[in-house]
């Protein structure tokens, strides 16, 4: 039981450390790149060299975390206490609201009407355009 807890503690610490170090590495690259960018506005903030330099440092930790995960999964080590159902009292029985079917049909017809309206006013074409030529900043490339 104690070994199990130590394993879980180690794996938790590894995951937390990995996430923390990844975030710190990104911030470090950004700070470093920004300093260079003030000197040379055309200099990229993120470069393959900066990323691989930090990646090399993080790789052993990543492999260790992945290894622990594999071992833990294979040995079926789980935080049984954390996965146990919570303690709470009985809950009131809830049934679906009356007139549910009517509301559903009305909403369904409304949805189909809106879609038809949207196809005719060019809304569907808008969705297509914005999905095939993408604004870079919107996905975090910026």
């Amino acid at each position: 039981m104690k070994k199990r807890k130590i394993f879980l503690l180690l794996q938790s610490a590894l995951c937390a450390a990995l996430a923390l170090l990844l975030a710190v590495a990104a911030l470090g690259i950004y700070r470093e790149g920004l300093a260079e960018k003030t000197e040379n506005p055309l200099a990229p903030v993120y470069t393959a060299e900066r990323i691989s330099a930090r990646g090399r440092l993080l790789l052993p930790l990543l492999l260790l975390t992945a290894g622990f995960a594999l071992v833990g999964t294979a040995l079926r080590i789980r935080d049984e206490e954390g996965l146990r159902p919570v303690k709470s009292g009985a809950v009131p029985r809830k049934t679906r609201p009356a007139g549910e079917k009517t509301v559903r049909i009305v909403l369904l017809l409304g949805a189909l009407g809106l879609i038809a309206l949207g196809v005719f006013n060019g809304g569907a074409q808008d969705v297509l355009g914005k999905a095939i030529r993408i604004c870079t900043e919107c996905i975090g490339l910026g």
Binding site: I29, G33, L34, P44, Y46, A48, G140
Partner: peptide, 30 residues
């Protein structure tokens, strides 16, 4: 989006556009 596009060897040019937006979103992702 961002990480899968960036991880492709043919998209190394995309690295040049990364900055504050990517950094903040990457930290949030972590």
């Amino acid at each position: 989006g961002a990480l899968t596009l960036l991880s492709h060897p043919g998209n190394t040019a995309l690295l040049g556009m990364l900055g504050a937006a990517f950094t903040s979103k990457f930290v949030i992702l972590c």
